[in-house]
Write a protein that binds this DNA or RNA. Sequence first.
DNA 1: CTGGATTGGTACGATATTCTGACTATCTCA
DNA 2: TGAGATAGTCAGAATATCGTACCAATCCAG
Lengths: 155, 155
Amino acid sequence: MVVRTKVSSSGAESELNLGLLMFIPYRAMEKEVLDALAAAGFDDVTLAQARVFQRINANGSRLTELAEAAQLTKQTVGFLVDQLERAGYVERTPDPRDRRARLVRVADRGAAAVRASAGVVAEIEARWAEHLGPARTAQLREALTALREITDPYA
Amino acid sequence: MVVRTKVSSSGAESELNLGLLMFIPYRAMEKEVLDALAAAGFDDVTLAQARVFQRINANGSRLTELAEAAQLTKQTVGFLVDQLERAGYVERTPDPRDRRARLVRVADRGAAAVRASAGVVAEIEARWAEHLGPARTAQLREALTALREITDPYA
DNA sequence: CTGGATTGGTACGATATTCTGACTATCTCA
DNA sequence: TGAGATAGTCAGAATATCGTACCAATCCAG
């Protein structure tokens, strides 16, 4: 994974690639939200579980969909969903369209966790917006949303 | 981890939070670069190793710095750097400023890997730029760079 | 409408990743 | 100089992730 396309010999700041530039704020938010969640009593969610959980669609998602979206194997996602299910965050229901498949849905406790983290996310986004200003914040969201069209494996 | 701040009841696309919006392209790039790297003969680098490797400064970084930047514990980073060192990607040199510390530097094979991936990264960024157009691409980089000021634990 | 290919998911075993707690050596500074 | 902070390591345990191999339901070409 390359980071710096140009490295000055003097040690001055170098240009980071867009990927890493995106990962830095993401990781910061992820960490902060997870910490807040733990403080709010949801102390049994792990990072890996959260990364899968957040991709669950409002109408329920199939395991395969989640795996593709998160770029993980279906075994890994199955493993994580098992834990989320045992902890009461999600539930599995049969998919009426395909008897092989089951839909993973957000369960009551999962919905509570979503509510709990919504405030923190809003707070972080507000902090970011304050730093960037409204125009740049809007541009950022706009560009990222557009970028999703060609980078989200399950969009 | 909350994703959707508003969920329409009809199943239409909902608003994702900025964090996830950043993670999606990042993950896509990460995967593509790592695959290309593996195809180019650097088939022993893992994702976790790469995530640490990419934070190494041109002048060398301390373990603690890497840990803070990557938001991992120093034990974890030490473990990963050990592997990178054994595989020839990095080397540890004593830090002249502090005899407790050692500087992790990119070694020859690491530099070769950087060169190998630079092309892929450029290609991906070009693809993104083509999709977004020059203006939005510049705005994206600008906003992300600014955001780094308040989200990079080691900036 | 049937048999082969595809798709959704699970089972098992092997690694890889990450953390907590405890410890040593060195450094800082009042 | 001595108390606390900092850089890093060691040991052990819990999590996460993958590869290979399966099964069952569905899809599709003929």
